[in-house]
Amino acid sequence: MLELQGIGAGYGQAQVLRDLSLTVDGGEILCLLGRNGAGKTTTMKAIMGLLPLMSGKVLLDGVEVSALPPHRVPRQGLGYIPQGRRLFGELTVAQNLEVGLMARGAGADVREQVLDLFPRLRERLRQRAQTLSGGEQQMLATARALCLSPKALLLDEPTEGLQPSMIDAIRQVILRMRAQGVAVLLVEQRVDAVLSLADRVAFLENGRLARTLPAADLRADHAIVDRYLGV
């Protein structure tokens, strides 16, 4: 279970997140929604320890990961799929996965499981990551994070700019992770995609949590979405 307790974070002097508290249970998909600049990506970076916290703490299964040095955070079981994929472009597919596997000392069995989820990557192991298509790159970014056998998975706009078949493949993997008991925190712009996937939805507004509610409520009453995201 991933828990954010009153975190504040930002860039230099500029504070973006203020007193943000959230919990994502194992086997649950929580979706963060909010306008541009609301602090969705900042939340992800703060959880990963890539931005220093100004206040509050982050817990993963009761362990205070925000007290650890940043490189120890993923080793607790946090898999991060950043916006824009951020692959190690000059490295091969196999090497990108190797970096993921190294993080928690995972072996060949984990690698096989991950490659079974993405058979297309298996065919391209020796290809450089930057030469893959957009969809394959997203698969690799996802696979790299799954190499950590994560307890919690952070996905920052995983379907941005992908063709429908790829979006579906990524979706299937997210659902599968949920079924395996992984806590999934998802940032997504396309509300319709969120509604069919998420269990709960949290709205961010100016770095604060505006409201959290079950996705079912949103499916019933679409007006709520317009209130927080409409222009």
């Binding site: 990963m48 320890g49 890539l50 940043p70 490189h71 120890r72 955070v73 993923p74 080793r75 991060y80 950043p82 951020r86 692959l87 190690f88 472009g89 000059e90 490295l91 090497q95 970096v99 993921g100 190294m102 993080a103 928690r104 790299r144 950590l148």
Partner: peptide
Amino acid sequence: RATQLDRDMATAFGI
């Protein structure tokens, strides 16, 4: 090499 290519992502993967 991973550190050279993307310092933040290297950190996010335990390096």
